[in-house]
């Protein structure tokens, strides 16, 4: 019998080769929790790979060697009813393996979950909403949406980010594979996790607990920046929205239409909480929680009917004339 390709080995080789290109590869860790998991998983893959090779070779050998026709005579083969020594052996050996795997897991569980929070770490409260993310920085007095900014953590002077996880409605899960494993955001059940990215850059992920229609488009973007850049970003976000008189019509429309009921724009009376904070909308690269790039064109399409990008979004299409639409978007693009 010819066996099809040995899946586990193929899998290992394939993930290494093809996958390094993936921005969400769990085998390309860039932060301590992800790294601890990575090392444990490689060790485990080696152990399980060995078990796989041994057992499947025995199976292949038995299937080929003891095939009918390889032996003479039609008599039944000798009947063997069991063997205590052998059965003992294949009970004890797995027990030992299990003990090893358990101890190594317990160690990593402890290291990741029970790590004490060092002074100087950044604190963020992440609130998941049906289909977008809200991030609060209590130390900085900031509320932003959808794009999380954190500073790089230098291993010699660690400044990890501690994320307090809440949900405004149903269950969600925060998963940025290169930074850490996932942790769920559950109503009435606060959770915590931490990351300490070693390199600046953009890290992607997405909601990993089914939360309804647009679960697929509840994407995560984590911007890891040098400390200076991060501080500059934070300062910018702390400013109230700048309003220029040239977009006064749009800004008035934002209030007279329903927008202000769901969105906050700092420095105006718009203080809605049902949708993302728009105070510095244009400082974000994407809209719709990572669904599409944040361009004036996309903004216009979004405000006219968000469902073209995100069918099940909870922002309703607004009843606006073309002119009103343009005026509002003209206003939105000034929110730097």
């Amino acid at each position: 019998m010819a066996w099809p390709a040995l899946p586990l080995l193929v899998l290992l080789a394939a993930t290494r080769a093809a996958a390094l290109a993936s921005p969400t590869n769990i085998f390309a860790p860039a932060s301590t929790p992800a790294h601890s998991i990575y090392r444990l998983s490689i060790f485990e893959l080696e152990v399980l790979g060995a078990i796989f090779v041994v057992v499947s070779s025995l199976l292949a050998y038995a299937a080929i060697r003891f095939r009918d026709g390889r032996q003479e005579g039609q008599a039944e083969p000798p009947q063997i009813y069991g063997s205590n020594q052998m059965e003992l052996a294949w009970t004890v050996l797995p027990v030992l393996i299990v003990v090893v795997l358990f101890l190594s897991s317990a160690q990593v569980i402890h290291r990741v979950q029970d790590a004490p929070e060092p002074p100087g770490s950044i604190e963020v409260t992440a609130v998941a909403h049906r289909f977008w993310w809200e991030y609060r920085y209590p130390q900085l007095g900031l509320v932003v949406a959808n794009e999380l900014h954190v500073p790089v953590s230098d291993p010699s002077r660690p400044t990890p980010t501690y994320i307090h996880l809440l949900s405004a409605d149903v269950d969600h899960s925060f998963w940025v594979p290169r930074l850490a494993g996932k942790t769920d955001l559950i109503p009435n059940h606060p959770n915590d996790m931490w990351i300490d990215p070693h390199q600046s850059g953009l890290y992607l992920g997405q909601c990993a607990q089914y939360c309804g229609t647009e679960h697929a488009k509840m994407l995560l973007r984590v911007y890891v920046q040098s400390r200076d850049e991060f501080d500059r970003w934070a300062q910018g976000q702390q400013q109230p929205a700048v309003t220029s008189s040239s977009v006064a019509v749009g800004s008035a429309l934002f209030i007279s239409k329903a927008c202000f009921a769901c969105h906050t724009i700092g420095g105006t009376i718009a203080a809605g909480k049902a949708g993302p904070d728009l105070t510095h909308l244009m400082s974000r690269d994407t809209i719709g929680s990572g669904s599409v790039p944040n361009t004036p064109d996309n903004l216009q399409k979004w405000v006219r009917n968000p469902a073209v990008f995100k069918t099940g979004t909870l922002m309703p299409a607004q009843d606006l004339t073309d002119q009103e639409l343009q005026q509002i978007v003209a206003y939105l693009v000034t929110l730097r």
Partner: peptide
Amino acid sequence: AVGFLFQFLIGGLTGIMLATAPFDWQLANS
């Protein structure tokens, strides 16, 4: 039956990967 043995072996071993809580923090719901 032999197909079962081979595939169940792999399925079971991947179950052990999931049973490793830290590994599962990455793999759960994926």
